[in-house]
């Protein structure tokens, strides 16, 4: 089984972001980058599926040249080889999906695994757009029935079940669990409770250095990635005001009614 898995470099969620001088970007000085946590889950799932069904895991990323750091992390987790599309400028979800479409056409994987969103832009778009452009079935927000403390999780059993050319995906829906069956090849996006990603071990970090990272550019793939979405302005949420102490529940209710106006 050939699994294509996307990984995005995102700003470390632990670092406090600053808005750039142009008000349309995030200031990049002192930024730390990590692998998008949802993509980390996708990589973990890809590795488990590969270990169960044989085959290979190819990780792909789009971004500036130092995105190779995040690709190496995925390789150290256990992916077999990597593709990097070098692009330093702006990029929206549509551009990403069109680039991935080309990679898909070259690699012809059995399944594409992607994080359901990236924690920086929170767009949730790239997966569904890719499925649409490829005309493939999609199953979003893959989760699983087992808890993350279960023996299955400890034994690294994949949460996505593949039998023949059918994948069974469990997803959280409003008020319950929904089970989907999709025909492969398909695009599957991963949610938080699908698995607990492994730490890349140091021996694997060493081995990952020798694994192949193949480079492309949007030009070499023949894709125009001029953004269709234009960022007008970034703004920080208003600073939180200091709270006040109330004497009793009656005063609290009065304030909620007259000042906060959240109850009537």
């Amino acid at each position: 089984m050939k699994i294509l898995c996307t990984v995005k470099r995102v700003t470390d969620p632990e670092v406090k972001l600053k808005i750039g001088a142009d008000q349309k970007s995030i200031a990049t000085d002192n930024l730390k980058y990590v692998l998008n946590p949802f993509d980390e889950i996708a990589v973990e799932e890809a590795i488990r599926l590969r270990d169960k069904h044989q085959g290979e895991v190819i990780v792909v990323s789009v971004g500036p040249s130092d995105v190779s750091t995040q690709l190496r992390t995925a390789l150290a987790m256990g992916a077999d080889r990597a593709i990097q599309i070098v692009h330093a400028g702006e990029l929206d979800s549509d551009g990403v999906a069109r680039l991935l479409q080309k990679v898909y056409e070259q690699e012809k994987p059995d399944v594409v695994l992607m994080g359901k969103l990236s924690v920086d832009n929170d767009s949730w778009q790239a997966g569904p757009l890719l499925a649409e452009y490829l005309g493939l079935p999609q199953a979003t927000y893959a989760s699983k029935n087992d808890s993350l403390e279960s023996d299955n999780e400890k034994n690294k059993v994949p949460g996505i079940t593949i039998e023949g050319t059918t994948a069974t995906v469990v997803r959280e829906a409003d008020g319950g669990i929904e089970t989907l069956k999709v025909q492969l090849p398909a695009v599957i996006t991963t949610d938080l409770r699908l698995n607990i990603p492994r730490y890349p071990s140091l021996p694997n970090i060493m081995k990952a250095k020798k694994k192949e990272i193949k480079e492309h550019t949007p030009q070499s793939l023949g894709v125009d990635v001029t953004p269709k979405v234009r960022v007008l302005k970034f703004e920080l949420p208003p600073a939180r005001k200091a709270g006040v102490k109330v004497a009793d529940s009656a005063e609290l209710l009065a304030k909620l009614r007259s000042e906060a106006k959240v109850i009537s």
Partner: peptide, 19 residues
């Protein structure tokens, strides 16, 4: 590399993010 070459440890991980 040196730590593994010297066989001082049986396994190891390094944090990839502040989390």
């Amino acid at each position: 590399h040196e730590i593994f070459e010297a066989a001082l440890v049986t396994d190891g991980v390094v944090a990839q993010s502040s989390q």
